[in-house]
Simulated scan of single mutants.
Amino acid sequence: MIDVKSNRKIPFLCFVLLTFLSGCAKDRSMNPSPDGEKVKIYIKMPEDLELRSMRVMYRSAVCQRVTYDGDGRPERVDGHNGFEVPLQRREGDLYGANLFVDGGGPCEWRLSNVMFGMTYRDPSRFGENVLVGGGGGVIVVFDHNNPQLSVGRRVAVEGSELKIVKDYYLWLNERYTGGYVKRASLSGCGSGYITYEARQARNVYFEPVFHPEFVVTSVAPKKHAVGDFIKFFYPDGTVESDPEGRPNFKKMQEIRLRAEAKK
């Protein structure tokens, strides 16, 4: 026997489903005004380093999405639209890109953050199987949202000009657990990405100052053992163990400055 009451619900359910599907098809394209306000990115890249692709994130309060907290409760947050933007060579070792603050379109996209950085260009000079490591990442946030990758140090900056000039050292690290791996990474102040909260910034300049003649190496324990940490071999001949698993940046700075003072 057919349940007439149940059968009457079918058209209503179809209507709800079609409405939901049509909402998913919302135009999320960007359409910035040609004369709109821009953020100008400039990066000065040393010859020993190589630029990574710059990741750009726009967000929208119009085209929101639903996320769930740890208790499974829904929460509406700004929608996102992320993509890679190539950095064009300006002149010599200077690269750059111009980004619209207002991305336009039906979603009214707004520039949220950018991620960029560099890696060591030629790890093979230290061995055929040496891999490219991390380090040297920067995030600049232009709005109230957290970046999609939120690790490392955070710095609040006021004003339209953001100038970032930081020292970096080469870090050769060897690991045995899970299979032998050797990487050529970059060691700077802090770990992971440095995040700058710079909502008014419209000119961003980044200059990594690389010191290739000062190299720190590390060797991880071959087996996990309590109290057995990674050993770091510094260019002045000292050896230290560190539970944090990263080179001592302050020590590298002191070693370099002492060496330069003797010249």
Rank of each mutant, 00 (worst) to 15 (best):
V130S: 03
N31M: 00
V151L: 06
D228L: 07
L87C: 05
F83S: 11
K163C: 09
R73H: 13
N98S: 10
R55N: 09
Q253R: 15
V141A: 11
Y168T: 05
C14V: 02
E197T: 12
D71F: 04
E244G: 03
L257Y: 15
A259V: 06
K222I: 14
R202S: 02
D27G: 09
R52W: 09
I43H: 04
K38F: 00
P243E: 07
P247W: 01
Y68F: 15
E244Q: 04
K250F: 03
K222N: 10
P208V: 15
R89S: 10
F100E: 00
K262G: 01
L13S: 06
V209P: 10
C107M: 08
G134T: 15
G117V: 13
K262P: 01
Y95K: 06
A156P: 07
C24S: 05
K231C: 05
I10Q: 10
V181D: 11
I164S: 07
F142E: 00
P34K: 13
G82T: 09
E128I: 03
W171L: 02
R65H: 14
F210T: 07
V56E: 08
V141T: 11
I10E: 05
W171A: 03
D35Y: 02
D143S: 02
E161A: 12
Q148F: 07
N98R: 11
Y193H: 11
V157K: 15
S185M: 07
F232W: 10
A61W: 03
G23E: 14
W109E: 10
A225P: 00
E91K: 13
M54Y: 04
G159H: 10
S60W: 10
T217V: 12
Y180M: 13
F12I: 13
P74M: 08
E213N: 15
P247H: 03
E254S: 13
G179F: 08
P46M: 11
K250V: 04
D3S: 08
V157C: 06
R125F: 07
P11M: 09
Y120E: 03
A261D: 14
G36N: 02
Y169C: 02
A184Y: 13
E213C: 11
I139Q: 08
V56C: 06
V4N: 03
R89V: 09
T195Q: 12
A25P: 05
S218A: 10
T67H: 02
Y176A: 14
E108M: 03
V114F: 05
M1P: 04
M115G: 02
F100D: 00
G190P: 02
N7A: 03
G23W: 12
S60P: 04
R110W: 01
K44N: 08
G135K: 06
Q148H: 13
R28E: 05
A156C: 02
S112T: 11
C24M: 14
P208I: 13
V216P: 00
D143M: 02
Y193S: 14
L87N: 10
Y205M: 13
V209T: 14
